[in-house]
């Protein structure tokens, strides 16, 4: 369980010489095995928030606990970081080694895991992201989606409980995004908690829970259907909703209510058909 209690984070803005508050007295609980998407426009504080979960950012007020471990306690730093793994945006800037398996081994090596155990973890992690065939490949020869899957494997090899993806699909093409989303969903089904930061509403719609951030605070925290039924609010936050949900909303405004909120074209067509007949 990740618990944020009245947590704040700020940094010094060098230009205006002021403290800029990016996370503002925020409280939040994320359970093991959950699939949470975090939405918010650039600068809403979502990236700063998740970096509080693995001690990259240290709170300036309030506390964050990961499985009851205090993130300000230096002694448990590596314990927390191996529990809360993070995949970043640019696939090129997070792979360390020249060979895939060496890169995946990087985390467990740092944790001092015995070599034979590392071997097993590397193989398992690469199989879990469906990249075992590329065990000897050089990262720069892989596609963006493949590189991100290697980055995920590198995190899995630390055997974490929580996997954070900080806009990890932003630089990928649709095929790469699908690869990463499929992998993440599969891992979630196997019990991994996933925290997904994304700009793509269709991706967020696949989560169990969507958190919308604004000005360093939580604006909405509900299941995707509830969140994406608030079309006007989402647009006012410079966000969007999946086109299926938007169409249903426009129809509802015109007097044709097709019932519950739909997130996919299939769901829309089904609900529409029922309503028309």
């Amino acid at each position: 369980m990740i618990e944020a209690k009245e947590v704040s984070f700020s940094y010094d803005d060098e230009e205006t010489n002021t403290q800029k508050i990016v996370v503002d007295k925020l409280s939040l609980t994320i359970n093991k095995g959950e699939f949470v998407a975090i939405l918010g426009h650039n600068g809403s504080g979502k990236s700063s928030l998740v970096k509080l979960f693995n001690c990259v950012n240290i709170p300036c007020a309030g506390k964050v606990y990961v499985d009851r471990l205090d993130t300000t306690d230096e002694k448990v730093l590596f314990d927390i970081r191996s529990r809360v793994g993070m995949v970043f945006q640019n696939p090129d800037n997070q792979l360390v080694a020249t060979i895939v398996e060496e890169d995946v081994a990087f985390g467990p090596e740092n944790l001092g895991v015995p070599p034979l155990e590392i071997r097993k973890r590397v193989d398992d992690a690469l199989k879990a992201v469906d990249m075992y065939a590329y065990i000897d490949a050089a990262p720069h020869n892989l596609s963006g989606g493949q590189k991100q899957r290697i980055a995920i494997a590198g995190i899995l090899a630390m055997q974490p409980e929580y996997l954070i993806l900080d806009e990890s699909t932003a630089m990928l093409d649709p095929m790469g995004r699908r690869e990463v989303m499929d992998t993440v969903k599969r891992l979630n089904r196997q019990g991994m908690a996933v925290i997904l930061i994304t700009h793509y509403m269709e991706e967020a719609a696949q989560a169990d829970r969507v958190i919308v951030m604004e000005e360093g605070r939580i604006f909405m925290d509900a299941d995707p259907k509830k969140v994406f039924s608030k079309v006007e609010e989402m647009k006012s936050l410079r966000l969007g909703v999946p086109q299926a949900a938007e169409l249903a909303y426009c129809l509802k405004k015109g007097g044709l209510d097709i019932g519950e909120t739909v997130l996919t074209p299939e769901a829309f067509v089904e609900a529409f058909q029922r309503r028309i007949q």
């Binding site: 269709e202 169409l247 529409f272």
Partner: peptide
Amino acid sequence: DVPQITKILNAL
């Protein structure tokens, strides 16, 4: 990827 709206309209 075909846009969601196109998928819906094609189904209609």
